[in-house]
Every structure is written in structure tokens, then in C-alpha cells.
Amino acid sequence: MATQSNNPLKGILKKPIPPAADPKVREVAVQHANIIQQRKELEDTITDYIIELSKLPLDRSSPYTSSSPSPTDAATFKSHVRLFQPSDYEDLISERNANGLCGYTLCPKPRMRVAQRGEYKLINYGRKDFSIVPKKEIERWCGAACARRAMWIKVQLNDTSAWERAGIDSIEIGLYEEPKKTEEDEAARRLTRDMAGLQVEAERKAAKDAQELALERGDTDEGAKRKVDVRIQENSVKGVAEEPSLGKDDDGHLVTEGYKTKFDSQKNTASKNTTGI
């Protein structure tokens, strides 16, 4: 007992590493903490956007409809929805439904209510496009047109996290274009616009591909100044080129790189027999 009081007990475990004395370690920790903080803030922003977008359109009495929304609302919608993942967009739809609105953000109408009980509903009965749809699905929209418009947006959304996309300006969400009465003039105009769009798209893609390729090859500005000096030297040719031949021997066609495989079938089987017995 007396010895115990004299010698304090020693732990057999390793001494814990003293907390980051190295300023570099601290720097890294702070950097990571900042990243996490940024992500959290971005998540908050997305919820803010969901709340804001769940109230659109702001002016319900105006002549604007879901097919021709007011430009300000459309701009707000497009700029906010950019950051959404498909799941956030689903949340937005359910949020709007909870408020009794049609799920499509730019639609001023209330969502449809199916009076009948039952899980499913028959639509377009007796027609070619007849189908059985869950009641819940129908009640999310004011009509099939809005469902299509909303899904048009959804398929453009990306599954990568918002913080990976926040800085990329080139992500643009387009609204569903209403199929107008086919006037030739209109069609032609759209065609030229589409072509222009395609060209821009192609150029952008080419530029991006070139950039990625350069990165992969290490052809950055710094990479261009190579450390190793590469000099290519031609090998001087002596004599005349000669076409390949099979050689003088008859067995030339059996020779592989100058070596002819020897194969004695008789001997092989005999030896097999002796070992077999």
C-alpha cells in the first residue's frame, strides 16, 4: 500500500497526441470546418428557396397563366431551381401541395381534388390513352399539362450536391415550351433559334472538352515549360529495304521467329503408355 502512494500508476496505453500545435494542422481543420459551414448555409438557402417558390406566383389576379408566366416569376424560379436536386424539387412540390396549390411552381391554380374515394382513378375512359393512375398523383397538379411542365423541369435537375454546382453559371433550366399553333413563320423562327442554341452548345462543349483534355495531358501553362528537354533523332538507314521472304527451306512456313517446333507424335504416345502402366 505504501509503495502505491509513492509511485503513481503508469498507464500502458500510448500517450495521446497533444492537440494540434502545428499551425498547418489547425489551418486544415479550419478549412474543413468552413467547408462544412458553407454546405450547411447552402442547405438553409435551399429551404429558403423552397419556401419562397412555394408561394409563387405572387400575382394571382394577373392575366399570366402557367403556360405564359410573368417574366419576373419565371426568372426567380429559374434562378432558384438551378441549385435543386430532384429530391429538393419533390419537396417543393409537396410543400406547394400542402398549401393547396398546383405542384408546378408558376401555376396560379389550386391543385385538383378528386372527390371520389379510392386509391386509383381512371382517366380518359374509353379513349386510346386510357390509364389507371393513383389518386395521389393526380391531386398533385391542376391538370396533366402542369404535370408535364413540372416534370420537364425535374428531368433537367442534377443529382450532384448543390455545393458542387453552386459556382457553375452554365447550368440553366429551361421552361417547357408550349407547342404553339404551327405557323410556318413561328416554326422557322424556332428552328433558327434552336440552331443557334445548338451551335453555342457545341462550341461550349468543344471548349470544355479541349480544356479537360489539356488538363489530362498536363498541358497547362506550367506544364508547357517542360523540365526534360526532348530531342528526336532520326535513325539513319543503311542498305536497301528488302521484302520479307520465307527462306530457302521448305519448312519456312513452320518457322516462328527463326525457331521450328519439333513434334514427334510417336515418341510422345509411347512414353505416355510406359508411365501409365
Binding site: 429551404t47 423552397i50 419556401i51 412555394s54 419537396d91 410543400e95 400542402a98 398549401n99 393547396g100
Partner: peptide, 8 residues
């Protein structure tokens, strides 16, 4: 309705 806004 009980959405994000009310909960917040």
C-alpha cells in the same frame, strides 16, 4: 398546412 415555413 404544416410546411417548412410554419415549422421554421
Amino acid at each position: 398546412a404544416l410546411g417548412a415555413e410554419q415549422m421554421r
